[in-house]
Amino acid sequence: MSDLGVLSYYLGIEVRQGKEALKLSQSAYASKMLERSGMSECKPCVTSMEERLKLTKASTATNVDAILYRSIIGSLLYLVHTRPDIVFVVGYVSRFMKDPREDHWAVVKRLLRYAKGAVDQGIYFPKTGESRL
């Protein structure tokens, strides 16, 4: 076993260590995910989901590519490790992976637009003398 120095990148998670805090983010992973989904040039939005949005499994909208939908949801599930602000929306849209429809895909696209606007966000752990966050 050898010492590789201060941890800076591990499994797609960027680690920035300073005297005041520790920050975990996945900006490179989020950028690659946006490229794979064809949303790298999209216009960012401020919120991750519309307010009071109701989706159902019995939607009558047209089907979308289930493989692409599942792939993007899987990528978003990994992005959740450092982005707790999108946990609810990712969990909500993952319910429709069996038979994704156009209205489900619209919510995923909005979530990708939100991720585009907040690529550099992550989890921030301040270093304090106490053992709590």
Rank of each mutant, 00 (worst) to 15 (best):
I72T: 01
F88C: 09
F96V: 14
R113A: 06
Y10S: 07
H81K: 10
R52N: 13
C45R: 00
G129L: 14
H104N: 08
Y124L: 15
G74M: 09
L133I: 11
P44H: 04
Y69W: 03
L112Q: 01
V108T: 02
Y114L: 13
R132M: 11
S25Q: 07
M1V: 07
G74A: 02
A118M: 12
R110E: 03
S131Q: 09
T62D: 12
S27C: 11
K57R: 15
D3F: 10
F125C: 15
I73Y: 04
T47K: 05
E50Y: 02
Q17C: 15
A115I: 14
I72L: 02
E50R: 08
Y92D: 11
A61P: 00
W105M: 10
A58Q: 14
Y9A: 13
Y69D: 04
E35L: 14
D103Q: 03
K127M: 13
L11S: 08
E102W: 06
R101S: 08
L79I: 08
M97P: 06
L7S: 11
A30E: 03
L53M: 14
S27K: 01
Y124M: 13
V64M: 03
V89T: 05
L7A: 14
S8Y: 05
E20K: 12
S131N: 13
S2K: 09
D120N: 08
K109I: 06
S40G: 06
K109T: 08
I86V: 11
